[in-house]
Amino acid sequence: MLTPTIVWDEAGGGIALLDQTLLPGRSEVVLVRSTSELVDAIARLAVRGAPALGVAGALGVVLALDEAAREGWDPARLDAAITRVRTARPTAVNLAWGVDHVLSLRAQGRDAVLAAALRLAAADEAANRELSRLGADWLLDRIDRPRLRLLTHCNAGALATSAWGTALGVIRELHQRGRVEFVYADETRPLLQGARLTAYELAGEGIPHAVQVDGAAAATILGGRVDAAVVGADRIAANGDVANKIGTLGVALACHAAGIPFLVAAPWSTVDLATASGEQIAIEERDGAEVTAYGAVAVVPDGTPGHNPAFDVTPARWVSAIATERGVLEPAAGDSPSAHA
């Protein structure tokens, strides 16, 4: 049983986070009691994954209100703290969405904001379970095999959400039905979310799997070892373009070449109808040192910089389907999210 990713600790007066930078070696919960601590936790990926960031954003407003009351902040300082939380990572739309979702209740007081944030977390789990059911059904309707061979990229499981998961939620649903043969988990350079986190979840569920280097994904797919790829999303544009962890685009291209489904699993909160296409999505550029060093050990010559975009955008024409709790869309066939607003 996984330790919950993110919960409100009323007794402790803050957000209890499972520090994902320590997995799989250590399972450690940290208590975050200030907005500065939350922004740091988001930036260093102690909490990550679009749905989990949505919950973090909502609970971050509660932190800001508590901090303001505790330290006597004026309204301008409170607003600035909330803005820092809202903009801590630019690509995942759920973070700002979570803040905005509860901010309208600020005039009703801190308890009303907290209640709304807790409802948002519960709704995220319900959405994830429903989209997983729908995504599993969609795959089984199209793949004529008793058990499926799947590939996933990065981590879109319970660790990336309030509970259950999105892409890994689909895989868990299939596993519970006895319909999973094997899962290839891309390691996901440079921070190894696939190797550290996805494998941790798959092992915990007893799902047969292997971790492969990102560069092996295309050969695995084109070599006929995979029936479908299932990934999450950090932002989905109105036209169906999908922003997800860097390397996702290559997986989609390989699936297109192999003629197998490329399924995106994400709650509707990840759909950003205000963003017309992927060209308008801001791609987070992280510290190049994450690429040029492994821990404290340099792996490139002195003076060689690292190019480290955290995400890429897969055009809608290569997205077979997007499974949300509202239903399954097929962008490659012209079925865009904007048509379901």
Rank of each mutant, 00 (worst) to 15 (best):
S132N: 04
I15W: 04
V271N: 03
G178N: 11
L105S: 09
R84E: 15
A310F: 05
G98M: 01
V62M: 07
I283C: 09
A76Q: 14
L168H: 09
I221C: 07
S132Y: 08
L222G: 03
E285R: 14
D302A: 15
L134G: 02
D124F: 04
V242N: 08
M1D: 13
A203Q: 14
R145I: 00
S36G: 11
Y200R: 06
W318F: 15
P331D: 11
G49F: 03
G288A: 13
R147M: 06
L31G: 12
C154K: 11
A126L: 07
A332M: 11
L95K: 07
L139K: 06
G327Y: 09
A237D: 09
G259N: 05
P146Y: 04
I143Y: 03
A257I: 00
V291D: 07
A160F: 06
L168V: 10
G72S: 10
A293D: 01
A158G: 08
R110P: 06
A254G: 01
L134C: 07
S162F: 14
L31Y: 14
I143W: 08
P190R: 10
R77L: 11
E205T: 00
A219G: 15
G13T: 11
T304C: 12
A68T: 07
P146Q: 10
V300D: 05
L263W: 06
R147I: 01
I82A: 00
M1R: 14
L151R: 01
Q20C: 01
P331M: 11
A298R: 15
V30H: 13
D40I: 00
A289M: 00
G224Q: 05
Q108D: 15
G49W: 04
A282C: 02
N239P: 12
G178E: 09
E67S: 03
G25C: 01
R110F: 06
R110V: 02
G247A: 10
W97S: 08
A233F: 10
T324E: 05
A289N: 05
P4T: 13
L150I: 01
I283M: 10
W97L: 07
E130S: 11
A121P: 05
P301H: 13
